[in-house]
């Protein structure tokens, strides 16, 4: 990469993402307007009809795990953006500390979640596998979200877009952690006497492109891009959890609850006023869009 591109990339990344993010916010606003115009918002927020849930009620542990994960991701975004664009005086060392602390918690979460998916008694990794039916029904899911179809196929706990996003989060988190650690240019590991930069990118990327410092510069670019991907995906995730399943959203924050009689798709009378599940019109019922409702993280 020429020197010109290296400096231009630095500027372009900011311009692109600071342009893209408001566009995404506007797009989500337009999407919500679509919900209003098609009557979905009326059915959900006025009639209080929300999707049925396979896993209601949501237990306390997943709620706690999701909540602390949310806090850590929020801290990571806030402290990370502060490190790049310091917006108040004197907080850089503190924010770095916050950033690395939150990263450690998120990594513990990730390891635990992978163990839960593959090693625990539950082994729910199948919930995330994108299978053939997911791919063949993907157009219908997309058409539902752009208001061409009134419903989307309900194939499992998560739809294909959720599965893809959650699967993508795993390598993104790992790469983000590694590139973040690679920015530690001065702290030497005690036994091997190498910096984290040398250990992660210096020994292989450094010789290829000229120096460890340059390799760290590239790591920083990757770290910054993934940071924005997280911000974009999490924003969409929050929007959909509110617009598609606000009942589960409230339940997660202790402001409402999901009736367990509505679990397993068995719709019954509303357990509380205004809490009416959407009856499944056919086999292609509204999906359990319970990302926040049943996802453990």
């Amino acid at each position: 990469m020429s020197t010109l591109i290296l400096t231009q990339v630095n500027v372009w990344l900011d311009v692109v993402f600071f342009t893209l993010y408001p566009i995404v916010l506007v797009a989500l606003g337009v999407h919500f307007l679509g919900n209003v115009l098609t009557g979905r918002a009326y059915r959900r927020f006025v009639k209080w009809q929300w999707p049925e849930h396979d896993h209601a009620p949501i237990k306390a542990l997943p709620k706690f795990l999701h909540f602390q994960h949310l806090v850590c991701i929020g801290l990571l975004v806030l402290s990370g953006l502060y490190i790049r664009f310091p917006f108040f005086t004197g907080g850089r060392p503190f924010m770095r500390g916050v950033h690395y602390f939150a990263m450690t918690v998120v990594m513990v979460n990730l390891i635990w979640r992978l163990w839960f998916a593959y090693g625990s008694r539950v082994r729910d990794y199948r919930e995330f596998v994108v299978n053939r039916r997911d791919i063949t029904t993907m157009p219908q899911v997309l058409m539902y979200y752009v208001f061409i179809k009134p419903s989307k196929p309900h194939l499992g706990k998560y739809n294909v877009m959720q599965k893809s996003t959650y699967i993508l989060f795993v390598p993104m988190l790992i790469v983000q952690a590694l590139t973040g650690l690679a920015l530690l240019e001065f702290w030497k590991l005690p036994v091997i006497n190498m910096t984290m930069s040398d250990l992660i990118v210096g020994w292989w990327l450094g010789p290829l492109i000229g120096s460890t410092s340059l390799a760290v510069a590239y790591a920083r670019i990757v770290h910054y891009v993934i940071n924005w991907l997280f911000i974009l995906l999490v924003t969409i995730h929050v929007y959909l959890s509110v617009s598609e399943d606000f009942a589960a959203f409230l339940d997660f924050f202790g402001l409402g609850f999901l009736d367990k009689r509505h679990a397993q798709g068995k719709a019954g009378p509303a357990a509380s006023p205004g809490h009416t599940p959407i009856p499944a019109p056919n086999a292609l019922a509204d999906d359990v869009h319970g990302a926040t409702g049943s996802d453990l993280l």
């Binding site: 400096t7 500027v11 410092s213």
Partner: peptide
């Protein structure tokens, strides 16, 4: 900075020039 080379040093141009580049 460690092991700086010419390509890395091109970043020095950003120090006072970034606002103008923007």
């Amino acid at each position: 900075h460690t092991n700086v080379n010419d390509e890395f040093l091109s970043y020095a141009g950003l120090i006072h020039r970034r606002a103008a580049m923007l």
